[in-house]
Design a protein around this nucleic acid. Structure first.
Lengths: 210, 210
DNA sequence: GGATTTGAACTGACCAGTCAGTCTAAAAGT
DNA sequence: ACTTTTAGACTGACTGGTCAGTTCAAATCC
């Protein structure tokens, strides 16, 4: 079969009009799905609900994605991509602990902007036996490795002890920021980002003894 | 609804947790449910599966628990109870940072012993709109407050700066231990508890600047 | 002999995925 | 111009299957 696109040759491919419509629909579906799944979990969220929230017919979901799981997996990829880019950009140009600090702030900002995504991320990351599990782990490791790289740099610069367990510390920093951010939004949303970042920053800048 | 324990009065107060036969069954159901739900999530786990894994008939599940949700909620209570007790006991008799350190170790031990429970805990804690959500939050706060109490003590003893944000730091410590432990079990299970605890301990003992 | 468990059948709601058909805008035909 | 064709995007009723929860008589345990 294969569409047999009749080669719309024409002037500068106007085809864009159609595909931008499609990507707008996909975006709406991502947004609907991320909040619903964060609230209820993957299995408890029905495709009908997602479609309704997105203001779209059920069939459209299946026109745009192969399956419910596929929608979810692409959503995951999309979100983690945004996070990794944000962290990398935040750390750029700075060095060592300055960079770590900037990344922590970027992490907080990201979670504040996409709280549902963060919820969904914690909920699914350490889960085993799921179809999208490998995807998620790979992307998570990519993210943590951005932190690890900065720590390694700080060690090289003598800002941190040379025998620091970089891997473990990266996990610790990641977990710290994640849980602090989620608790912040869940329990003390009135506090400002600067406030939270200040508190976190002090912990991050602590000197390792010995 | 409300077990209405038929008070098996009998010799030496068996009144506790009804007959031991029944509580053995409940225990088996807890264990079956916790692993299945950790792997698949609550909605994706069927009662038939739980019964089968526990080596029990489906009818037995409903003889012992009012519903699937009820089983889950009691499971949650049971698990968080164990954790809180373990943390409190670990910190007892020690003071300040020593206590914090011991609690971190107890946390690691708990998660190593009940990894499924830990998975399930992270997956559900920041979730909104669930029936058992309030239960879970209350119990989580109880746990974090054990950490906060120790931090406050350390501040009072001058081991930590007096203007430390105790609440935020408690969240941070909690998240650090949680994520480090989960990553440990998921990615480097061959490392020893002492090893992991050593790495974590150094981070916890870091001195706050200023 | 009462408490507990078994096992199997049943129901009714719910839900992922399908499919035949509609709509629209733009390309092709005349 | 203006009609016809094409195809991408979308629709929603429908299907086949799944599962929580019920029921209960018979078996088993203490």
């Amino acid at each position: 079969m294969t569409a047999h696109t009749p080669a719309p040759v024409a002037r500068h491919n106007v085809a864009m009009t159609t595909s931008s419509r499609r990507s707008a629909t996909r975006q709406k579906l991502y947004e609907a799905a991320v909040t619903l799944i964060a609230e209820q979990g993957f299995s408890a969220t029905t495709v009908d609900e997602i479609a309704e929230r997105a203001g779209v017919a059920k069939g459209t979901v299946y026109y745009n994605f192969a399956s419910k799981s596929d929608l979810f997996e692409e959503l995951l990829r999309h979100g983690i991509g945004l996070l990794t880019v944000a962290l990398r950009e935040a750390g750029e140009g700075l060095s060592g602990l300055e960079s770590l600090d900037a990344m922590a702030r970027a992490g907080l900002e990201f979670i504040r902007t996409y709280p549902s995504f963060a919820q969904l991320f914690v909920a699914e990351t350490w889960r085993t036996n799921r179809a999208w599990h490998d995807t998620l782990r790979l992307m998570r490791e990519e993210t943590v490795s951005v932190v690890a790289a900065v720590l390694a740099e700080a060690v090289a610069a003598g800002e941190l002890p040379s025998d620091l367990d970089v891997q473990l510390t990266a996990s610790a920093v990641f977990g710290m920021v994640l849980v602090v951010a989620l608790d912040w939004l869940a329990f003390q949303p009135e506090r400002s980002l600067d406030d939270i970042h200040g508190g976190l920053s002090r912990l991050l800048r602590a000197r390792m003894p010995a």
